[in-house]
């Protein structure tokens, strides 16, 4: 019995349980007006490495949805613009058109009109990063 008590007494030292922490992803809505043959970009900083997804969520001519193709890209701010490392010609969709892994650092998402929009249009990009 004494032995049992002894073991029990020594067993009071317990380790504190550790749990893995997961950070919720950050969602950015980048909205603006894109001029014909124009370019806009938006810079953001990642403190955790992981997958970035970008989606051209909407493009409107006035209040009317438009189907024009635009170039959506991800990259690093450089000079007076955003130097993209991955890009895609796309129109609006409800799923990400771009998805790429990036390390910790400062990055940018860029939207460009290469074909020439008939008029300035309003856009919204949905960007999700760790």
């Amino acid at each position: 019995m004494a032995l049992a008590i002894a073991i029990s007494a020594c067993g009071e030292k317990t380790d504190t349980p550790t749990s893995a922490t997961s950070t919720a992803p950050t969602t950015i809505l980048f909205s603006g007006t894109l001029q014909p043959l124009g370019t806009r970009f938006y810079s953001y900083t990642m403190t955790t490495a992981g997958t970035v997804s970008a989606m051209l969520a909407s493009l409107e001519r006035g209040n009317t949805p438009a189907t024009n193709m635009l170039e959506l890209g991800l990259g690093i701010p450089a000079g007076t613009g955003c130097a993209t490392s991955v890009a895609s010609n796309t129109n609006t969709a409800l799923i990400p058109q771009l998805s790429e892994d990036f390390g910790v650092g400062t990055y940018c998402v860029r939207i460009s009109d290469k074909d020439g929009l008939p008029v300035p249009m309003n856009f919204t990009i949905r960007l999700v990063h760790p």
């Binding site: 004494a2 032995l3 020594c10 030292k13």
Partner: peptide, 16 residues
């Protein structure tokens, strides 16, 4: 025996 065991336990725990 019980006394010896208790003493040993105390010494063992004191190591913590």
């Amino acid at each position: 025996c019980s006394l010896v065991l208790t003493l040993l336990t105390a010494i063992g725990c004191s190591g913590d």
